Amino acid sequence: MDLLINVGLPLSLAIIMLSLGVGLHVDDFKRVLSRGYPFAIGALSQVVLLPIAAFVIVKLFALPPEIAVGFMLLSFCPGGVTSNILSKLAKGDVALSVSLTAVISLLSMITVPVLAAWSIAHFMGEDAPEVSITGLAIAMFLITTLPVAIGVSLRHFATGFARKIEGPLSKAATGLFVLIVLAAVAGNWQLLVDNLGIMGAGLISLCVSLLLIGLGLARLAKLSWDESKTISIETGIQNSTLGITLAALITGTESGFSPLALPSAVYGIMMYVVALPYIAWLRSR
């Protein structure tokens, strides 16, 4: 189990982020400058409103400290490849989705360690493990920012090779994601059983509220319908693998998968249950 957490988990996330980077173009970053307003609305939803909504849900459901921290860690994570795929399925603005995923994923190296340290201190108090913001930032750089940068570089300088490996990388990323989620759930099975009702209700409430918050904000900002669908999905769909990895980085591996990882693991399964009917509704509009 220690080998899976210490080596397999970070390596899996790095491969997932590399697969994201390989699918990106330099133009995806340049597009932020030409479409600043829709991007700003999406960034506001993800970086600011998402953690606020998670904090409210945690307080409303009076979640246990470790589960509460797990919720907050999930809310700090950017969208991943899944949000891009769902935006395409919803007939949204895929270019905007990709730009948001790319930039917010890179910025997470700065935002996530600070917010994670705060949430642990706030909810766990004296029981909080010691968190090194610098250590988390370095780890985030190595397993998220660097793989994305490598992937983008491959796409730009070795386009043929990047296209050749994009499919296998995507399949590998999907398989690793499923393995990580199942391992995290199995490693915290009793905690899951004890808290499934309240945690499930909280996660469903969080996912639904975020999808609607993103959509409502985009409509208030008078974005196009395609842009609004994308903002909604980018706000409501998080990179749960990063949440699981963060939990392991924070608590260590002495006792297997951290309980802090459980909300992200359950969310990794549940988000499809919530999102797919919502996507069907968006497609029908």
Score class of each variant (00 low, 15 high):
P168H: 03
A128C: 09
L212F: 15
L176H: 01
F61Y: 12
D127K: 13
I85P: 01
A40S: 14
K88H: 15
I204T: 13
I213F: 09
L33K: 12
I150F: 10
L50W: 01
R35E: 15
L179A: 14
S45D: 10
A158T: 11
Y37P: 01
V56W: 08
A43S: 10
L249W: 13
W281T: 12
M72T: 00
V148E: 02
L182N: 03
A53W: 02
L196F: 14
V7D: 09
F71G: 09
L18M: 02
L89I: 05
P65L: 04
L60Q: 11
T245W: 14
G8H: 02
G8D: 05
S45C: 15
L203K: 08
P65S: 13
I213K: 06
T241Y: 07
I85S: 05
L106T: 03
L246T: 07
A158C: 11
M1W: 11
A102F: 00
V131L: 04
G200M: 06
S99A: 10
G125I: 06
F257W: 15
A247M: 08
W189V: 15
Q190P: 02
S170H: 07
L282D: 04
G197R: 07
K30P: 07
F257I: 13
I198W: 10
V131K: 02
V193S: 07
I231N: 02
I85M: 13
V47K: 05
G252R: 05
P38C: 02
H122C: 11
S132P: 03
F161Q: 10
E126H: 11
I120H: 01
I269F: 15
I237D: 04
H25N: 15
M199F: 02
H122P: 05
I104S: 01
S255D: 15
F61H: 03
V266M: 07
R31T: 09
L282S: 05
I231E: 01
G92H: 00
I233E: 00
L182D: 10
R283N: 01
A184H: 04
F29P: 07
I231W: 00
V32K: 00
A14S: 12
L203R: 02
